[in-house]
């Protein structure tokens, strides 16, 4: 007789391996997308704050175009739509590889970067202009003044909203299931249909999402203790 909650199913065997593989895929999607989205967000924020009108507008257009379309639409576009525009040879090369994960990473990166760029931009705007001016007066270039003086201060202020975007990203990786990326939800559904143990499969997924979210929040707390916001 099978128990009400079959813990062994989750801790050993094939189904355990499936779920862990899904977890690793979800973590990879999050890690890679975050590593790409954060620098992109900083670049977009700087473009929006640049003195050149054309750049400001292109940054504005990018952010609004991305964040006013649901993530699901982004995923489907990058998976089904965008490859249509590629030359045949390139498309076939892409389809021979992990096109699902690639599309998901592109969609998640752009989507997350659009939101993060707004947080970074308001962080930069919260740093008094005199800080930038003092750096320029010492002889630092625009880029060096931003990198050494303004951004380190702005990013500390921006950590709480960036953490909340990272949590969103972590949870949003689950949407990649619709284009067949073998992430955590996809694998949980696979285990469910193979075993009919719905509760176990989705409980595993839920606990993973919750646990990882708490770890991210904890890391943020540590970072803020290590690099506190300082004002003069």
């Amino acid at each position: 007789m099978t128990p009400i909650f079959d813990l062994n199913l989750l801790l050993t065997g094939t189904y355990h391996d499936w779920l862990v593989a899904g977890l690793i895929t979800s973590l990879s999607l999050t890690g890679i997308s975050l590593a790409l989205a954060l620098p992109l967000a900083i670049v977009i924020a700087l473009i929006r704050l640049s003195p050149v009108k054309l750049l400001q507008w292109s940054g504005f257009a990018f952010v609004e175009a991305i964040r006013n379309v649901p993530l699901l639409a982004h995923l489907l576009f990058w998976y089904f739509g965008a490859p249509e525009l590629l030359p045949t040879a390139l498309r076939e090369w892409l389809y021979a590889r992990n096109v699902e994960a690639t599309s998901a990473i592109i969609a998640l990166t752009l989507y997350t970067a659009a939101y993060m760029s707004e947080d970074v931009r308001s962080g930069i705007r919260s740093i008094p202009g005199q800080q930038f001016e003092a750096a320029r007066a010492l002889g630092f270039s625009f880029v060096a003044s931003m990198r050494l003086v303004v951004l380190p201060q702005a990013l500390r202020v921006t950590i709480p909203p960036l953490i909340s975007q990272t949590l969103n990203l972590w949870k949003d990786t689950s949407i990649a299931t619709v284009i067949g990326v073998a992430e955590l939800m996809y694998q949980a559904a696979k285990v469910e249909s193979a075993t009919f143990r719905s509760f176990e499969a989705f409980a595993f997924a839920s606990v993973c999402y919750l646990g990882m979210s708490l770890l991210i929040t904890g890391a943020a707390g540590w970072y803020q203790g290590r690099f506190p916001v300082r004002t003069a």
């Binding site: 005199q130 800080q131 001016e133 003092a134 750096a135 320029r136 007066a137 010492l138 002889g139 003086v149 380190p152 201060q153 500390r156 690099f227 300082r230 004002t231 003069a232």
Partner: peptide, 18 residues
């Protein structure tokens, strides 16, 4: 380079607080 040869002291100090 030009600016780096001129010391400038501001009314509001503008030290880098971080």
């Amino acid at each position: 380079a030009f600016r780096s040869h001129i010391g400038f002291v501001f009314q509001q100090f503008n030290l880098f607080p971080h």
